[in-house]
């Protein structure tokens, strides 16, 4: 048995292809990204080694600081809107209402669509002249609220966030739903016998029991916001005047539009480090709360 399961040739055949692909692409790329971030390099010829100068510049760059702030703001807004909404929907759907399966399927549909389709669709929804949003406001007699949602510096950022939140509610709803469904029936029955009704049992029984899932979702939401790219790229590409910039869109334009390979790479390393630190901090925070 030991001999069979310790077969070195088999182990190599099974793991080496995946390991080579993985190491050759991901690990190599991260190391190279870090190396590039120490260079002043426009992509042609050799870069000049400048140490951590790019990082120093990064934290003096107003546009970058706004981008970093925007992604944190997205995380915060998503946390206080998307998660409570998703939890509420999951609580309702698990309370034994009619059409449970139907609603679950419908709420999840946006998750299966690509950000490009959703982004393009929302571009049309926000269209200042013919979009459904301004049309609706007009029909309700609220012409004063009509505006160029994604073009106006005051509304662009929030307007770009709405589709991101809209798309992912169903996903978190489903995670909460699955988690609530896995609570043992006995617990619920016992609570019922003690006189807990829908609302009180949700507050005192269900929500405490799904806390681990709330935590997981909170981490997802925040890390996801730090990495946000697709929807911003499709909707505004960081504009107007960098109002909706996020770190990854800024990285992309620095590298591929401005040929600032070194500076752009320092942004991507910033994203990596920020994600790792944020994940550790959040884990720690939740851990402390537990005790």
């Amino acid at each position: 048995m030991n001999k069979i399961l310790g077969n070195k040739t088999a182990i190599a055949i099974f793991t080496v292809p995946a390991l080579v692909l993985f190491g050759g692409t991901i690990l190599y790329s991260i190391i190279m990204s870090f190396r590039y971030s120490l260079l002043d390099w426009n992509g042609f010829g050799e870069g000049v080694f400048v140490g951590f100068a790019n990082y120093v510049k990064l934290f003096q760059d107003k546009v970058f600081l706004r981008a970093a702030g925007n992604s944190l703001l997205l995380g915060a807004i998503t946390l206080v809107t998307q998660l409570p909404l998703a939890l509420l929907l999951a609580l309702i759907l698990t309370s034994g209402i009619k059409g449970e399966g139907f609603y679950r399927t419908v709420f999840f549909i946006p998750m299966t669509l690509s950000s490009v389709v959703i982004g393009q669709l929302w571009l049309k929804i926000y269209n200042p002249n013919y979009g459904i949003l301004n049309t609706l406001l007009g029909a309700l007699g609220l012409e004063s609220l009509q505006r160029n949602w994604l073009g106006d510096v005051d509304t662009a950022l929030l307007s770009a966030f709405v589709p991101i939140i809209w798309q992912n509610v169903g996903y978190h709803m489903l995670l909460f739903y699955t988690s609530i469904k896995s609570i043992s029936r006995d617990v619920i029955e016992a609570a019922k016998l003690d006189g807990a009704t829908g609302f009180t049992s949700a507050i005192y029984i269900t929500i405490p029991l799904v806390k681990p899932m709330i935590r997981t979702c909170a981490i997802f939401v925040i890390i996801g916001s730090l990495k946000a790219f697709d929807m911003i790229y499709v909707l505004t590409n960081g504009g107007p005047v960098h109002m909706t910039e996020v770190p990854s869109s800024l990285m992309f334009s620095n590298i591929f539009n401005l040929n600032k390979y070194g500076y752009g790479s320092s942004i991507s390393i910033f994203i990596v480090v920020e994600c790792i630190i944020m994940a550790l901090v959040l884990q720690k925070m939740f851990h402390v709360k537990d005790e």
Partner: peptide, 24 residues
Amino acid sequence: PVYWIFISGMTIPVHATLLPLFLI
């Protein structure tokens, strides 16, 4: 260790690999 090397890949944002992959 090999398992953890693979798992570490989950925390790495794809953005950080974009330029190096492009150059390769």
